[in-house]
Simulated assay, not measured.
Amino acid sequence: MSSINDSNQYMRNLIEKFPENLTEAIDISYQYRLKKEYQTFRNVVICGMGGSGIGGKLVSSWIQNDIDIPINFCQDYTLPKYVNNNTLIIASSNSGNTEETISAMLEADEKGATIIAVCSGGKLQSLCEKLNYEYIIVPGGNPPRTALGFSIVLLTSIFGQLNLISKEKLKEFEQAKDIIISNKNEIHLEAKELADFINNKELIIYSESKYEAVAIRARQQFNENSKILCNHHTIPEMNHNELVGWYGGADHYAVLFLETDDWHEKNKKRLDFSIDTIRNKTTNIKSIYSKGETILIKSLYLINIIDWTSLYLAKKNNIDSVYIAVIDNLKNTLKN
């Protein structure tokens, strides 16, 4: 029991530091400036897995209306064929030892792509030094999912330093930090209520499509911290398939909608229709609402609620929120 309590206290401390991590990451971004002069890129591919990979998806969703070139993702060992010397590869691995990311980076080097890495050290740093690529060092030693603040700020900083987006984007992280801190009590209350709502049910998370990265982050947190399975989908896409699947729905499902005030007008109508349809199969329907003026700030507010919810749900079921031995066992199996 004490071991589980200690682990959950450790996780609590890490989640508590999220606003502080944003400030620390901003300081790192100002201290570390890219030194090389770079060409004009035609596309960007962000390579990263799990807690390191989700940062790229979030940042991409925040800057999609600011950047003039496409951003794609590689969450595997191999890169898309189109990657070439006009491609920017951003390799993100908190540990610096993620084998899929390292494999993709080595292929990128062979293809002549430009590479910039974000890591805490490890093989990724060594390879960057050997192959003469720039990298940004972030604090390590904690679960990658708790290092999100560093990932999202420094990825955003890279885009800004390369003049792919405005450098002013970083100011939104300070605004997000302030909103999270000023609403701390409300966030904790909502997280505890949400944990009660989810407990002993099968969770399905819905968001508007531009917030899908937030829904993925939520799913990952419930997977790793709370040790539960859950699914996610987006509006309007779910209206073309999963909505029909609700004919087979049942009351053991808990449905969580991530709502913001910037939904497309058509999607607002789709949301209302979807809720009415789902209510025929389950009464367990709940929405959480963002605060803030921009998609970045709204996303981080929702993420903070979910992070706390995942911990409170773990504590409710006497679950160790830090424990991920099955992933460690997989890595050892792959090594052998």
Rank of each mutant, 00 (worst) to 15 (best):
I116H: 06
I116A: 06
I116G: 04
V118W: 06
S120V: 04
S120F: 00
G121P: 08
G121H: 05
G121N: 07
G122V: 13
Q125P: 02
Q125V: 11
S126D: 15
L127T: 04
L127D: 06
E129C: 09
E129R: 15
K130W: 02
L131E: 10
L131S: 03
N132A: 10
Y133N: 00
Y133A: 00
Y133G: 00
E134Q: 15
E134P: 02
E134M: 03
Y135R: 06
Y135A: 01
Y135T: 06
I136Q: 10
I136V: 15
I136P: 12
I137N: 11
I137M: 13
V138I: 15
P139Y: 06
P139K: 14
N142H: 10
P143T: 09
P143V: 06
P144R: 04
P144Y: 09
R145G: 02
A147F: 00
L148H: 13
G149H: 04
G149L: 08
G149N: 04
F150D: 08
V153Q: 14
L154A: 10
L155F: 10
L155W: 10
T156W: 01
T156G: 15
T156E: 03
I158A: 08
F159L: 15
L162G: 12
L162Q: 14
L162R: 12
N163I: 00
I165R: 06
S166K: 05
S166V: 01
E168F: 08
K169Y: 12
K169S: 14
K169L: 13
K169D: 09
L170E: 04
L170S: 08
L170C: 07
L170W: 04
L170Q: 02
L170T: 01
L170D: 06
K171V: 05
E172K: 10
E172V: 02
F173Q: 02
F173V: 04
F173M: 09
Q175H: 11
A176I: 01
A176F: 03
D178V: 05
I179G: 02
I179T: 10
I180P: 09
I180C: 03
I180Y: 09
I181S: 02
I181D: 00
I181E: 10
S182C: 05
S182E: 13
